[in-house]
């Protein structure tokens, strides 16, 4: 074949490639424009937010038509969502078995770490309690829930919604929380990969994670909420009003003393 013939063959091959590329590129531009602009915005999880906190926000968004009294954002949720071994697997609403008291028990997760109630210890009289913050956070303000605003009657507003009461023990002469930061990543790994484990492997990991955990609810109320309770509320910075409320177990009494607590007629409107 002559040089001229080779050259034309080359030009035809190039032409075929150019036409194909032009068709693909034109089609992509034409239709991707339409797809792109018709794509609905999906509310994405902010990078800084944990998955657990995001899921809770989504749930609240879906339920907003069902809750007349919308409340403030749960500021402690995100801070602890991936910084507490228990919460990573069990969420901040783990209590669901006791139908009457589950909501009351769940509210504690805002103020105390899980092992405050669930620590497996035979002698709890030697336990000490203190505040713990999520790793990397050192809030300067008083923890939320430690004082009552006399004007409004609700908790005093504070910027610290993350500090929680936690049991402490002596390690090398210093008091340290029972919580272990190493366990956070183990729990995150377990949740990410649990579908790849066999049942036996799962059980083994779960048993190892819960070796210091005691599954108890409710019956421990009076160990903290009484005048001789093991948590020294005043020493932890609670004001007198709040300390009194907590020692008298303002809510728990309704549940422990009576099967059903009836409102007196006194408050009924005419």
């Amino acid at each position: 074949m002559s040089n001229n013939g080779n050259s034309r063959l080359e030009a035809f091959i190039v032409f075929a490639i150019v036409v194909t590329a032009a068709a693909v590129l034109s089609g992509w531009l034409t239709f991707s424009v339409q797809f792109e602009r018709q794509k609905e915005i999906k509310v994405k999880k902010p990078k800084s937010m944990s998955l657990a906190a995001w899921q809770m926000k989504e749930l609240e968004r879906k339920q907003q038509h069902e809750h007349f009294h919308l409340g403030l954002e749960d500021k402690a949720l995100d801070a602890w969502a991936e910084k507490s071994t228990c919460i990573i697997c069990h969420t901040v609403y783990p209590h669901g078995r006791n139908k009457q008291a589950m909501a009351i028990i769940n509210l504690h997760t805002e103020f105390v770490t899980c092992n405050t109630c669930h620590l497996k210890l035979t002698d709890k009289s030697t336990l000490r309690f203190g505040w713990v913050n999520p790793p990397g956070m050192t809030p300067a303000e008083k923890p939320y829930g430690t004082s009552i605003d006399p004007e409004t009657g609700v908790f005093t507003q504070t910027g610290n919604h993350v500090s929680k009461i936690t049991p402490l023990h002596m390690v090398d002469g210093a008091l340290r929380p029972y919580m272990s930061e190493q366990d956070f990543s183990a729990a995150l790994n377990y949740m990410a990969e649990k579908d790849t484990y066999s049942e036996a492997q799962k059980q083994s990991i779960v048993d190892a994670m819960h070796k210091d955990t005691e599954i108890k609810e409710f019956v421990l109320c009076r160990q903290c909420h009484s005048t001789d309770g093991i948590i020294p509320f005043e020493k932890l910075g609670f004001d007198q009003t709040r300390t009194n409320q907590l020692r008298r177990m303002e809510i728990g009494g309704m549940l422990t003393n009576y099967d059903t607590f009836y409102f007196p007629d006194l408050f009924k409107q005419e």
């Binding site: 009294h69 403030l72 609403y93 669901g96 139908k99 504690h108 409004t152 303002e250 809510i251």
Partner: peptide
């Protein structure tokens, strides 16, 4: 608000849906 002032006053319905019983007193 003795009970309902707590943000995490939440429980599950019979079908397992998490319900929010919180009422922001100030709001």
């Amino acid at each position: 608000l003795l009970c309902h002032k707590y943000q995490r006053l939440r429980g599950y319905t019979a079908d397992g849906t998490l319900r929010n019983y919180y009422v922001d007193g100030k709001l």
